[in-house]
Design a protein around this nucleic acid. Structure first.
Lengths: 233, 233
DNA sequence: TAACTTTGATATGTAGTACATAATTACTAT
DNA sequence: ATAGTAATTATGTACTACATATCAAAGTTA
């Protein structure tokens, strides 16, 4: 390949893809274009490799990525089958606040606030007495315990985690579990004020006998310190 | 290995991990335990392979996964450096409504509703006249165009996509872009009613001169048909 | 004939070798 | 001292080999 000038060189470098990356893209395209569905059996590794014109090595490195996402499962002799990917699986592995960029951390924190402000409607559709009772127990526990920093964060995670669980939306719940470490990390950095005008226990009572609007406003007040911080920037 | 009974066999099968999976976990642990930070240089492939007791082949299949997440970047001779992962990258690749499980699709759809109900506060912090003007143009466009099903979905995506963009949260915006195909897919299946009590244009006006509460209620009414469907189940 | 056993074939999983390529370092000659 | 060149090193790709699990078919026994 001839390199004509600096600009071309730059473009080449930016656009340069290893064969593994290319094969990964081609595989995804192949599956989409041929309308593969979960349960369908893929061609064997050697077939794929030869038809893509790469070594089995490269093909397997690309397949390894699909396997990580749960999109491909394989058994010896039976071959590979396409399956429903686990859309959060990959995220769960890399969710380490220490290596994620600061901007992304901020974004994630805001998403958590957004989800909790928006969960009211679904919460009111799915809430049960049993769940509210359990939530109340969590909220009461924190009063009993020592007002320790570590415990406080744990309580915060327990309480809000229970709320997510009450939505009956397992994907949202798992997503929130990813967000929690980030919350803990930021809470630790920023030393969030210890008291809010609306406590967890207040929220429980609102959820039990208040209107949707009441609960939403309560949640907004409960999260006020976080929103105030956003406003400053 | 002795197989005592059916239960043990089952347990063995569930817990069975390939060496690639084990190495992937070990690598992530290794990086976490040794406090690697973005920019740090990893040991060479041969060093890692020998220290983990596997072939370079297996190691590279595991590394390929980290590379996919953007967690590892490598240049010839220079070696591999740890970098900030792209937490949504993997999700973007597998977000194909046709292969994602029905339950997950439902969850994703609910998350979209939750985010849009919860985005009000951040929207009011970040909104600018310029953005609202642009949003209005989008809302007006849809009146001009033919009330075609395909166009309707496109408009819906344009409008709500613009809202996400207005939050200034690129992660949330990217996330919403993932949700949109799912929305389109479900909208196509369920034949969502064409008119809502609160139109896009109404929302624009609320956002421009109404209070937070006004906008939130407007959005709730705008999404009513979706919430009504949730209630039935 | 039916049930069971054995054997063979096949696809994935892992290891190892080889070599190309890019980039850094060391060396050499002027 | 500096420009140019050679050696070094780590990744990227290819190929071979073989172990292992599993399915299928052939063969065997009751």
């Amino acid at each position: 390949m001839v390199r004509k000038n600096a600009i071309n060189i730059e473009i080449e470098k930016v656009n340069f893809k290893t064969m593994v990356e290319v094969v990964e893209i081609n595989l995804l395209e192949f599956l989409k274009n041929n309308s593969f569905r979960p349960g369908d059996i893929l061609p064997s590794e050697v077939e794929l490799a030869t038809s893509l014109g790469v070594s089995r090595n490269v093909l397997r490195e690309a397949l390894s990525r699909l396997r990580m996402m749960g999109m491909v499962e394989s058994k010896k002799r039976r071959g590979m089958v396409l399956s429903s990917p686990d859309i959060l699986g990959a995220m769960e592995r890399v969710m380490n606040p220490l290596i994620i960029g600061a901007n992304t951390l901020k974004d994630i924190f805001e998403m958590r606030l957004t989800l909790e402000m928006g969960m009211t409607d679904i919460l009111y559709i799915r809430k049960t007495k049993k769940d509210i009772d359990e939530l109340e127990i969590i909220a009461q526990n924190e009063k009993a315990k020592r007002v320790d920093e570590v415990f406080r964060i744990k309580n915060e995670i327990d309480f809000h985690g229970k709320l997510y669980q009450m939505t009956g939306n397992v994907t949202m719940q798992r997503f929130s579990n990813l967000l929690m470490p980030v919350f803990g990390y930021i809470a630790n950095l920023e030393k969030i004020p210890k008291i809010s005008a609306v406590s967890h226990l207040d929220l429980v009572h609102l959820l039990r006998s208040g209107s949707r609007e009441d609960f939403r406003k309560g949640m907004r007040t409960h999260l006020e310190s976080h929103f105030a911080k956003l406003q400053k920037k």
